[in-house]
């Protein structure tokens, strides 16, 4: 049963110049559950993802990820700016400096958070299997000389990562396309490959940004079954942004609704679908419009 939340976002604020894209956003993503982040266009959903993966630096707020017994402060490993008080505390100064120099998106991934993008960002000129191998680079033999000489150790490690890549390809029904160039795959398969690739990094939590965008109803159905399998069979926490309400209501355990950068509701699917604030945000303010008409 979900104990402590896996990912905690508290008081996240993101400002671009004078525009506040997110203000004081707080929510939690439970372990081994599917959490959906929904909201009308421009609500700031993708901005939340971008703050999580280091695309943007959050203006303020805390993002913490739990991985086993470790608690990781995402804002810190992305390299936060120095504050005057840092100069009084040498240890803080040293860690800030370290993450300023060596921190970045890659550490978020290594901490156990993977994500996909709204638009497909595959390595288009590589084969399907190579796309998955790049994602597994932490568990391959990274010694370039070993690769150059094709040593037995290198071959063993390659075999291991290839077999794991194949497991995910099988889950996603891509096994027959393993040696095709990723850019040549049809759209629906590219979407799946992107999720498979993110899973190859061995994440605790996977953030999917509109995984069903551009898919036909059948493909969407398959996707929703896949996401449920990830949660139930592979014990992976899923955090997704989606506009397809049928998909969201069908698989989510928890829904967070965002509108104009503010969390307006959060709860179980049934509560959300009847929540007046949510309906107002999606359909316009029915109270005023309906009564003035």
């Amino acid at each position: 049963m979900p104990d402590r939340p896996l990912l905690t976002v508290s008081n996240l604020t993101m400002q671009f110049g004078g525009i506040t894209a997110l203000s004081d956003v707080s929510f939690a993503v439970d372990t081994h559950a599917v959490t959906a982040l929904i909201g009308p266009n421009g609500a700031g959903k993708t901005t939340v993802f971008n703050c999580l993966t280091g695309f943007y630096r959050a203006t303020s707020g805390e993002l913490t990820l739990r991985n086993g017994d470790r608690t990781i402060d995402i804002v810190r490993i992305l390299g936060e700016p120095f504050r005057p008080t840092d100069f009084l505390n040498p240890w803080r100064f040293a860690t800030r400096l370290f993450y300023k120099c060596f921190g970045g998106s890659h550490l978020v991934n290594r901490a156990g958070l993977a994500r996909t993008f709204q638009n497909i960002r595959l390595f288009r000129e590589m084969t399907v299997i190579e796309n998955l191998l790049v994602a597994q680079h932490m568990s391959t033999n990274r010694n370039p000389v070993a690769g150059l000489l094709n040593t037995p150790g290198f071959r063993r490690s390659e075999k291991r990562v290839v077999s794991r890549a194949c497991q995910w390809l099988e889950v996603f029904g891509l096994k027959d396309d393993a040696n095709r160039i990723a850019g040549e795959l049809p759209y629906g398969l590219q979407r799946r490959l992107e999720i498979a690739r993110a899973l190859c990094t061995n994440p605790q939590i996977i953030c999917l940004d509109e995984p069903a965008a551009g898919l036909n109803p059948r493909e969407t159905e398959d996707l929703s079954a896949l996401i449920a399998r990830l949660r139930d069979d592979h014990r992976i926490t899923v955090f997704l942004i989606e506009h397809d309400m049928q998909l969201v209501m069908g698989i989510s355990d928890h829904i967070v609704v965002l509108d104009h950068g503010v969390v307006i509701a959060s709860g179980r699917p049934n509560d959300i679908s009847t929540n007046p604030a949510v309906i107002a945000a999606y359909l316009g303010d029915t109270d005023t419009e309906a009564y003035t008409a």
Partner: peptide
């Protein structure tokens, strides 16, 4: 080699490569 794979990935999409660790 694995290094080369990472180089090619970075060449094709630097941001995505970073997000994959």
């Amino acid at each position: 080699s694995d290094l080369g794979r990472r180089c090619r990935a970075t060449q094709q999409d630097r941001i995505m490569a970073g997000i994959l660790g």
